[in-house]
């Protein structure tokens, strides 16, 4: 099953992510975001960070989830490649994220993502599909 597809947007870039479950679509959205940022094939799973979120609705949950991962990238230069969602409902998400610190000698960085946005943001609970546009 395809994990995500890129969406073209003039100023920015976005993605649609799929899953067997909504939790999996959230994980695939995060995977897709890091695939936009870097060539994650060369990223090893040496660091783990846990994320625990509670939001007012599932759209804000997706927004916060992706932006929290960008926070780790800025503060610790962590590039994640695998996301294990250990708890999930419409308003809450708990996950373990695996990756490693950016190493310019081994990792190829593509473009920067400033933030996920609410523009065209969609969480489709029936189709287990999410859509997000990034400010890049």
């Amino acid at each position: 099953m395809k994990r995500f597809a890129l969406i073209e947007h003039t100023a920015d870039t976005g993605l649609v992510a799929y899953g067997q479950t909504l939790a999996e679509a959230f994980a695939n959205a995060a995977y897709g975001m890091f695939a936009i940022i870097a060539d994650i094939g060369t990223v090893k799973e040496v660091e783990r960070r846990t994320v625990e979120l509670g939001e007012e609705d599932s759209e804000s949950l997706l927004f916060e989830w992706l932006n929290r991962l960008l926070y780790f990238f800025d503060v610790e230069t962590l590039i994640f490649r695998r996301f294990e969602i250990t708890g999930f409902d419409e308003y809450h998400l708990r996950a373990s994220c695996y990756g490693e610190k950016y190493d310019p000698s081994r990792h190829h960085i593509k473009i920067g993502v400033k933030s996920a946005t609410y523009h065209m943001l969609e969480v489709d609970k029936k189709k287990n599909r999410v859509r997000v546009i990034f400010d890049v």
Binding site: F63, E64, N67, Y71, D74, V75, K114, S115, Y118, D135
Partner: peptide, 11 residues
């Protein structure tokens, strides 16, 4: 990132 996070927080 300081500006991006500030925008995220307040949106």
């Amino acid at each position: 990132g300081l500006g991006y996070q500030t925008a995220d927080d307040y949106i």
